[in-house]
Design a protein around this nucleic acid. Structure first.
Length: 732
DNA sequence: AGCACGCCGACT
DNA sequence: GTCGGCGTGCTC
């Protein structure tokens, strides 16, 4: 390279949708993609990641600055991960620097070395053990207490000392001065103790068949459709063990609420301690530890939520997405990626199988299976004697409601409770009543910052907006005419009151965001259910995900009608999923379950198709509808959202964006809008959107690249807050 | 996003 | 007279 220019192209954590060219650091040789560099950026220094090398630059030579130093000897991010990140940045139209930042544990983002966090452990010396504690206690009681702790515990990590006393460092160094305590460095490794002791159960024929049909290697997307309780997890475990036997790793993605300690325990009991966990609740050190364990092949299984899709893998063998229909795999702000879709892309690049598991697959996935792009594996039965629950519809036109409960529902509950079973009652609305109405003037209490009604929370005596969180004191009479206000509709708080009145002899547990606010409270309540101390289980969506309740024999759905007349093309899909997910909680043990559904529309075609034809039949019909209307998966969408405290600003921006789009759109691109979002005002800001619909992905991608660049240069774009959502899951 | 520059209003 | 409001521009 005779004097040729050397340029490193760097991703920097900034909202600018571009890379930045630098000259390599003076003393460094062999800069390569995937290494972190410290670079001057504007008036500051930033940490970036080298994306590519070049021997020329578009940037004029006098503007090229020199990087300060390389932070890594070898690439921190391997080529495969860099490719995934680059593709994600392009596909989701998100700045490369922010994408890479999202993929790095916080410590590495800030420039820390990629090594396990150093951890120091303290212990008492021989002299310390022989010391006269009683005498010490007279002059320095805290030192004495800590010294006896060190003696009693044999050795203590710094974290434990910190808990013992906030000023621990000073105390311990005083002990060290006296020669009574010493410290040594240990390797931090808190991937809890796991003993692989569990023996695999006997498989059902369907489970065995699924396992036989999922290959060990080569790109193979597989949809594992299994009713709740049919043993999908067991299929995953056996596939994982096959990978481990081949010396390969498995990445398991689970929904946000699905990552429970019980799930991790189950994996550790089977697989041992080579299970690393990745989720947002970890400390920086724990996250770095898990990340490194995956990269260095110490972890054989990595279980994580959405962001774990960006975990580096030394020996990738398999990716599993559990509950693949779950909306939490799509990030809803900032870098709006779909971890499920990226998983399929990554598996293709890696040439490995990817298993999408669900009792209620996303219609997109089902469509891919029907089109034979995915292998379709079915687990129709429950292992052992457990049977599918019987479903009954309660026609509310014929049965009066008392405080939200109909007689048939109460009778069914009593029958199951008297027979020793547990009843689960599902109502996806928290608070006491969703509306506070003045019977005289018809006024309802509204949120001042949103287009929404305030929800009455009686116990706290507050009116709460469930959209922006604002609260005010509940009132009992109308501010206009002083008539007494009446709470209209049912929330879990009100239903709890009524159920306690109806079934005083059975104890009840309510699980929703309000009752589980305190740390550890959810676990405590779940334990009450599992130990059968509680017989009636009342709750919201929270109940339906990831928890096993083996003694629940009856499920009651209080209000199945929310979602029957939904606003977007996905609401029927979501309705079916939530009905089936909650129904799946019934009868997991050896007793058959029953599901009772209250509805005002027992003849609604959506409901009858779902209940008589089952999920796949329901999906068939819904997919036919979508094909007619050219909704996904028969088209591809991108949604430009904007918000501003002034309504006019939103539309000025969106109109400008629309005219840019009209100039760039090719034949297959449709521009819909701008329109107000379904709830136009939220948290004091007006919201609007522009929908782009395209017949094929490549055309959409091509259009979006040019459009996004043009939109971001609009003067109006600086005034409104806006975002571009590719493959949006929510259309508002 | 940061961060600076720059030009107008209400304060010690 | 200055402190500071946020509009505008720039980051290899």
């Amino acid at each position: 390279m005779s004097g040729a220019l050397q340029v490193i192209r760097v991703a920097i954590n900034t909202p600018l949708n571009q890379l930045f060219d630098y000259l390599p650091p003076a003393k460094a040789s062999g800069a390569q993609p995937g290494q972190r560099v410290r670079v001057p950026f504007g008036r500051r220094e930033q940490i970036g990641v080298i994306v590519e090398l070049d021997d020329q630059s578009e940037v004029p030579a006098n503007k090229l600055r020199t990087a300060v130093e390389l932070l890594d000897g070898d690439a921190l991010l391997d080529e495969e991960l860099m490719r995934l990140l680059a593709w994600s940045s392009t596909y989701y139209q998100h700045p490369p620097g922010e994408v890479i930042s999202a993929a790095l544990p916080a410590g590495l983002r800030k420039g820390a070395p990629p090594t396990l966090p150093r951890q120091f452990t303290w212990r008492a010396t021989e002299a310390g053990r022989a010391a006269d504690i009683a005498t010490l206690a007279r002059k320095a009681s805290v030192q004495a207490r800590i010294l006896s702790l060190l003696i009693a515990k044999d050795s203590m990590p710094e974290a434990a000392l910190r808990e013992a006393h906030s000023n621990w460092r000073k105390i311990v160094s005083a002990l060290q001065e006296k020669g009574w305590a010493e410290c040594h460095e240990t390797v931090a490794d808190d991937s809890g103790p796991g003993i692989a002791g569990d023996t695999p159960p006997t498989l059902t024929q369907a489970q065995q068949q699924a396992i036989d049909n999922i290959p060990d290697s080569g790109f193979a997307p597989c949809l594992l459709e299994g009713v709740t309780g049919s043993g999908k997890t067991e299929v995953y475990l056996q596939l994982i063990q096959r990978q481990i036997a081949e010396g390969r790793q498995t990445l398991v993605l689970v929904p946000e609420i699905g990552l429970t300690p019980q799930l991790v325990d189950r994996f550790r009991r089977r697989i041992g301690d080579a299970v690393a966990v990745m989720h947002s609740g970890l400390t920086d050190a724990q996250r770095l530890n898990a990340w490194l364990a995956a990269r260095d092949n110490r972890a054989k299984v990595i279980i994580g939520t959405r962001s774990a899709i960006f975990t580096p893998l030394a020996k990738p063998g398999l990716i599993v997405i559990d509950e693949e229909h779950d909306a939490s795999f799509k990030q809803q702000d900032g870098f709006r990626y779909s971890a499920r879709d990226l998983a399929v892309w990554r598996a293709r690049q890696l040439k490995i199988p990817v298993v999408l598991g669900s009792a209620t697959p996303a219609f997109e996935s089902l469509h891919n299976a029907l089109e034979k792009r995915y292998r379709h594996l079915l687990l129709p039965e429950r292992p052992g004697s457990a049977r599918q629950p019987d479903t009954h519809v309660i026609d509310l036109r014929q049965h009066a409601l008392h405080e939200g409960l109909s007689q048939p529902l109460i009778q069914a509950m009593r029958r199951h409770l008297d027979a020793g079973g547990q009843a689960l009652i599902y109502l996806n609305r928290r608070g006491f009543a969703p509306t506070l109405l003045c019977p005289a003037c018809g006024i309802t209490e509204e949120c001042r910052r949103c287009d929404a009604r305030m929800v009455l929370h009686q116990r706290s005596g507050k009116l709460v907006c469930h959209h922006c969180g604002s609260e005010r004191r509940a009132i009992s009479v109308c501010t206009e005419c002083h008539t007494e206000l009446i709470p209209v509709g049912q929330g879990t708080e009100r239903l709890e009151q009524q159920l306690r009145k109806t079934f005083p002899e059975y104890s009840l547990v309510r699980i929703d965001r309000d009752t589980t606010r305190r740390r550890g409270e959810l676990e405590r309540l779940l334990e009450e259910v599992r130990s059968k101390d509680a017989r009636i289980l009342l709750g919201t969506q929270m109940l339906t995900k990831g928890h096993d309740f083996p003694d629940v024999t009856m499920v009651g759905i209080i209000d199945s009608d929310q979602g029957l007349f939904g606003t977007d093309f996905r609401s029927s899909e979501r309705l079916a999923q939530s009905i089936l997910q909650v129904s799946g909680r019934a009868g997991r043990g050896d007793r058959p379950g029953e599901v009772w559904i209250q509805t005002w529309y027992p003849d609604h075609p959506l409901l009858t198709t779902l209940l008589n034809g089952g999920y796949d039949r329901f999906a068939d019909e819904a997919l036919a509808e979508r094909r007619k209307a050219a909704w996904p998966p028969f088209s591809f969408l991108a949604l430009l959202r904007a918000e501003h405290s002034a309504r006019v600003e939103v539309f000025e921006f969106l109109e400008q964006a629309r005219s840019l789009a009209e100039g760039l759109a090719t034949a297959g691109i449709q521009i819909l809008g701008p329109a107000s979002s379904p709830m136009e005002k939220r948290s004091g800001r007006y919201r609007g959107q522009l929908l782009i619909q395209a017949a094929n992905r490549a055309e959409l991608q091509h259009f979006l690249a040019g459009w996004r660049a043009a939109v971001s240069k609009l003067r109006e774009a600086r005034r409104s807050r806006w975002s571009l959502d590719i493959d949006p899951v929510e259309l508002f």
